[in-house]
């Protein structure tokens, strides 16, 4: 039995052809159930938020996870291997604000990516206060919580609609197939077979 945790939302939507190929029925995929079994009963699927999908594979509850690279960068990839790079759910992690940061100022940056933001500010020599915000970060400069935000964007339209400019790209993001390090050793053949399915159905980057 191979257990797969998948990030709900855009990644799962783009993985639907793969999930159907793996034997998960449309009826099951459209249901509100968060744990699914495929028709042949040899694969189970956990539908979770990105961070939780990663946690499942790190803790060995799932053998495989399909998560955004942003999750790996922010929460670490200890105990997992990156099996495959895909072109699914492509976007960018960006610094955005109304105007570029003035030199020698103390920045206030709102983000849910606190670790990566802190690292980015240190690399650029910026003194910064990181304000954790877990909803729509775009609102932060408008209501005065922070002057800048760090968030992911695909088209940049939401940022634009909120009068924010992309000031820098911190990282290019796309979905990755990651595996539990021990599962690679104990379920090697099943994992290689799964990798083959991913490449043939959705391709690799």
């Amino acid at each position: 039995m191979l257990s797969i945790s998948i990030t709900k939302g855009r990644i799962m939507e783009q993985c639907l052809p793969l999930l159907r190929y793996l034997g998960f029925t449309d009826a099951a995929l459209k249901s509100r159930q968060l744990v699914l079994r495929n028709v042949s009963g040899d694969r189970q699927l956990f539908i979770l938020r990105g961070r939780d999908a990663l946690t499942c594979v790190r803790y060995g509850v799932a053998d495989i996870a399909i998560v955004g690279k942003d999750m790996l960068l922010e929460y670490g990839s200890e105990g997992v291997y990156e099996l495959l790079y895909t072109n699914l759910a492509r976007c960018r992690l960006v610094l955005a604000g109304i105007r570029p940061p003035p030199k020698d100022s103390h920045l206030r940056v709102a983000t849910k990516y606190t670790k990566m933001t802190n690292q980015y500010c240190i690399e650029n020599g910026w003194q910064a206060e990181i304000i954790p915000i877990y909803g729509s970060a775009e609102i932060s400069p408008l209501i005065g919580i922070a002057d800048y935000i760090v968030d992911i964007t695909a088209s940049g339209k939401t940022l634009q609609a909120n009068n924010l400019n992309i000031l820098a790209t911190i990282a290019d993001i796309s979905a990755r197939v990651v595996i539990n390090a021990a599962a690679l050793h104990t379920k090697h053949q099943e994992i290689q077979q799964f990798k083959g399915h991913v490449i043939s159905v959705i391709g690799s980057g």
């Binding site: 803790y59 060995g60 509850v61 053998d63 539990n180 021990a182 599962a183 050793h185 104990t186």
Partner: peptide, 11 residues
């Protein structure tokens, strides 16, 4: 070297 156990996802 590392030893793994079938059905257990840790070293």
């Amino acid at each position: 070297f590392a030893a793994y156990l079938s059905g257990y996802n840790y070293v």
